[in-house]
């Protein structure tokens, strides 16, 4: 249980940076309001609160990528991780400590996005909201996994450089502000080779009441990616920290 000490340090390290915390909560909420207002005028199906809320929630997880990548990379670059590696902490302790602290934040993001979405008029049943977590939570895993990979392999500077690219990519290939089927072509193919569009589609359908059976394919994609990225995250961490 020694990972708890390090997890609680990582937790503090994250939550004592109030600006980034606020950004990670307020920016998605702001975008949700903005696009819902646009939707009122242009009457696009995709800009209704019902459709926007799950998309923006998953989009907000881009912050999880950044937070987890930056902390890990910083610790790697400073001698702090080196010090930790001389302690009795085991690999599994490290993985847990650099993973668990982001879960409460992901839950908070979900809470804020759904609260704003519902205030804007999204009409979901309680059951469907709970059901949608079977895809939304794994999407958080996908993002923390990506963060672990980046944090293990890249420097803090490199991470902030590709960070904005990544956020843009998620918002485009996730089909959050556009109908991917309408765009079509290679663009649609790339989007559905990545997990984000699958996650967003699945969440939208579940919230619309289609049940889980109809989104099974999407779910497999998301779960597959969650497992692969998480394993890759662990491997990158191990690769960079193993004594050699």
């Amino acid at each position: 249980m020694r990972f708890v000490s390090l997890a609680s340090r990582n937790f503090k390290e994250l939550y004592r940076e109030p600006v980034s915390i606020l950004l990670g909560l307020l920016m998605p909420a702001g975008l949700l309001v903005l696009f819902a207002l646009i939707g009122k005028n242009v009457h696009l199906d995709i800009f209704t609160p019902d459709m926007l809320t799950p998309g923006v929630t998953i989009f907000s997880f881009a912050f999880l990528i950044m937070f987890s990548a930056v902390l890990l990379s910083k610790d790697r670059q400073s001698a702090f991780l080196l010090r930790l590696l001389t302690t009795p902490l085991k690999p599994v302790d490290f993985i847990l400590a650099y993973f668990v602290p982001y879960i409460p934040f992901a839950l908070l993001q979900i809470l804020v996005c759904f609260a704003v979405g519902i205030l804007l008029g999204a009409a979901y049943s309680v059951l469907n909201v709970v059901l949608s977590l079977v895809v939304i939570l794994p999407m958080a895993l996908v993002c923390i996994g990506i963060g672990m990979i980046l944090g293990s392999l890249l420097s803090e500077g490199q991470i902030s450089a590709i960070g904005s690219m990544l956020i843009t990519a998620i918002s485009i290939f996730g089909g959050i502000w556009m109908d991917l089927q309408m765009v079509g072509g290679i663009f649609e193919e790339i989007s559905y080779a990545l997990p984000f569009a699958h996650g967003v589609d699945a969440a939208r359908n579940i919230l619309a009441g289609t049940g889980l059976g109809n989104v099974a394919t999407h779910l497999y994609w998301v779960y597959g990616y969650a497992v692969i990225l998480f394993v890759l995250g662990i491997l990158s961490f191990r690769y960079k920290t193993a004594s050699n």
Binding site: K12, E13, R16, S78, A79, F80, L82, R83, T86, P88
Partner: peptide, 16 residues
Amino acid sequence: KEIIDVSPQETAIAGH
């Protein structure tokens, strides 16, 4: 690792 401790050459602390 249970019985040693190391003060690395570079300062290694948790900033926050």
